[in-house]
Each structure stands twice: as structure tokens, then as C-alpha cells.
């Protein structure tokens, strides 16, 4: 029993890293994704193609590969003079870019799905473009994207364990250490419980938000 608690505490220590990676990724990828979404809907062609190319590259390659690229390419290019002091920083950068690309497509779908009539109704009522976006369109976009967003965010929780491949000391790394050092296998499988609980809480949260937005249809 004592062993169980000490393993739990150790794994929790590792899971803290997963949570930090999760939180920082969300914090930056959510707004960055919106910028990329606006870029890829822009009337300015070069910007539009640039944003769409970024999305294509990011979505078209594995996140694991992107982690390697962010972590190892800068030192290679600078002949080793630049290295990430904290591997976590490299993981964060890769995750933020990766998730911003996915989020941008969700935003784009949500924004483009708003009927043209909503904008036109705003225009004929003398509203400014910014007023139409913030007062009319935004909440409707939020309602439309809650479901796909929650899907993506729950995926992010589990993806954080990928940071393991560039030696970020996250929960799976801790669990593996138990195997190597103490000969314990079960902590590896036990990590699943941490992810399950976290995702369970998120699911409840998203359900709550969906309910909150359920007061109107359309």
C-alpha cells in the first residue's frame, strides 16, 4: 500500500508536466489558431496561401516528427550553439504550432458556417464589421465549435505523453523509470487512470458549456 502511494505521488509529479504542457498549449494555440483562421480566410492571397500551406504541413506530418524537428533542427543549424535548455520549451513550441493549425480549421469551419444573412442583417442595421463579429457572429461560432473543439482538446490531453520522445520528464517517463529501476510494470498501466480522470473532468466541463449554449437554436 505504501508503495502504491509513493508511486501515485511520483506519477502525479510527472503528470504535472503533462498538465503544464496541456495548459500552455491551450493558452497560446487557441488565439494563434484564430489568427491562422483569419489568415486562411483572408482576401489577401499571399497570406491566405501561406496560412493554408502551414496548416497543410502541420496536419500532414506526425506530431512526433514535429517534436523532433523543433527540438533538434535549431541545434543542427547553429552547429550546437543553440540548444533548448529545457526540452519542455521545445515540446511547447511544437504543440502550440500543431494545435493552432487544427484549431484554425475548426474556427474556419465555424465562422464560414454562419449564414451570410446574419452579416447582412447587421450591415443594414448600421453595425460595424467588428460589432457584427463580436455581438452577432462570435457566440454563434462558439456554439458551433464546442463539439469539435472538445474533441480536439481531449486529444491534446493524451498527446502530451508524446513529449516523452524528446525526453521531457512527463508521466510515462516516470512510469518507465519504475520499470527500469524498481522492476515494476504496473505503474505503466496505472498512468491510464490519470488521463481518464482528466478527460472525464473535461468531458463534464464541455457538456456543461454545451448545455449553457443550448438556450437557443440556430
Amino acid at each position: 500500500m505504501d508503495q502504491f502511494w509513493s508511486v501515485s505521488l511520483q506519477l502525479l509529479e510527472g503528470f504535472k508536466e503533462n498538465c503544464i504542457l496541456f495548459g500552455v498549449t491551450l493558452l497560446f494555440a487557441l488565439p494563434l489558431g484564430l489568427l491562422i483562421a483569419f489568415g486562411s480566410m483572408s482576401g489577401f492571397k499571399p497570406l491566405k496561401f501561406l496560412c493554408r500551406a502551414i496548416v497543410w504541413i502541420i496536419r500532414g506530418t506526425p506530431l512526433m516528427l514535429q517534436l523532433f524537428v523543433v527540438c533538434y533542427i535549431p541545434p543542427l543549424l547553429t552547429d550546437g550553439s543553440f540548444k533548448f535548455k529545457e526540452r519542455m520549451t521545445a515540446a511547447m513550441i511544437a504543440f502550440i504550432i500543431n494545435y493552432a493549425a487544427y484549431f484554425s480549421e475548426i474556427y474556419r469551419g465555424g465562422i464560414e458556417g454562419i449564414p451570410k444573412g446574419q452579416y447582412e442583417a447587421g450591415y443594414v442595421l448600421g453595425m460595424k464589421k467588428s460589432q457584427i463579429f463580436f455581438k452577432v457572429v462570435l457566440l454563434q461560432v462558439v456554439k458551433r465549435i464546442v463539439a469539435p473543439m472538445s474533441n480536439e482538446i481531449i486529444t491534446l490531453v493524451k498527446d502530451t505523453s508524446l513529449a516523452r520522445v524528446i525526453m521531457v520528464p512527463e508521466i510515462l517517463k516516470y512510469a518507465e523509470d519504475f520499470t527500469k529501476i524498481n522492476g515494476l510494470i504496473w505503474p505503466i498501466f496505472y498512468t491510464g487512470a490519470f488521463f481518464l480522470i482528466f478527460c472525464g473532468v473535461l468531458t463534464l466541463l464541455f457538456r456543461f458549456i454545451e448545455k449553457k449554449l443550448d438556450y437557443y437554436k440556430g
Binding site: 444573412g117 447582412e120 442583417a121 443594414v124 452577432v136 457566440l139 437557443y216
Partner: peptide
């Protein structure tokens, strides 16, 4: 000018 649309275009929220 005021405009009334075929599809109403009320703000649903």
C-alpha cells in the same frame, strides 16, 4: 434605409 429579408435573419442568440 431599413431592410426586411426573405429569411428574416434574426439574431438567434
Amino acid at each position: 434605409f431599413g431592410m426586411v429579408f426573405q429569411q428574416f435573419n434574426l439574431f438567434p442568440q
